[in-house]
Design a protein around this nucleic acid. Sequence first.
DNA 1: ATGGGGCTTCCCATAATGGGAAGGTCAAGC
DNA 2: GCTTGACCTTCCCATTATGGGAAGCCCCAT
Lengths: 129, 129
Amino acid sequence: MNIGEAARGSGLSAKMIRHYEAEGLITPRRLGNGYRDYAEADLAVLRFIRHARALAFPLEDVRRLLALWRDRGRASADVRRIALDHVAALEAKAEAMQAMAHSLRHLAKHCHGDARPDCPILDELEKLP
Amino acid sequence: MNIGEAARGSGLSAKMIRHYEAEGLITPRRLGNGYRDYAEADLAVLRFIRHARALAFPLEDVRRLLALWRDRGRASADVRRIALDHVAALEAKAEAMQAMAHSLRHLAKHCHGDARPDCPILDELEKLP
DNA sequence: ATGGGGCTTCCCATAATGGGAAGGTCAAGC
DNA sequence: GCTTGACCTTCCCATTATGGGAAGCCCCAT
């Protein structure tokens, strides 16, 4: 299966499949003409990567998760730790963003939002410290 | 005031101050020796940028907010729209992240997290579609 | 054999930030 | 006057994940 089929079969772009290969996440066979050749097992790896990326795991985590996935003797505790660390990172970022959103919404609520120039949003950005 | 003082006075790094200049957000005077020379008004601009960045406004938004800030004839509605669009973007991202965090937390809850290999997290990543 | 579509590699761009090198400048102390 | 250390300048590179695009090779169908 060449890279175009692998892309359609995995839901990833050919561009990203090559990138994941450059990052060492997958190493397809090469045909005599230089074309990449993907087996069904490779397709499963690509889908795994897509699912992991859909959950926003950084590639470094994906690399470790793939290693554990392939390791029949893995401890589920290792997988769990990676996942929970990632959850903590996600929640921290999400909360930071929502805090910013709340502040701004509050400021915007007190902004007339008309043709007049005075605006508490700008007042806040202008503040001293 | 040279860039080091401006950095200490604004809470930004000298590196970023130069970057904001390259992006056209601020253009300090230059001394004969090539050194940048910041006036008090420049310092206010730098602080404005820091506050806006602390609320995660992208530099493009900061550029527009700065223009409005300087424009005595601005309409507060313009400021408000920029802010509320940004709030919407922040909330969308935050919600997406929290949805991922929730999924993963749910999966992790059903993972033994011990020495055994079976793990619903990997099962999920391995799933077909 | 020719054309179209697919494949290859390589370079570039994104957004915001930092690290670091090579070299010029200034001020203090001797 | 000279050295030293702190500061300044520009330029290049790296980060993360993704995509755009060029130049050139390959394969298959007409």
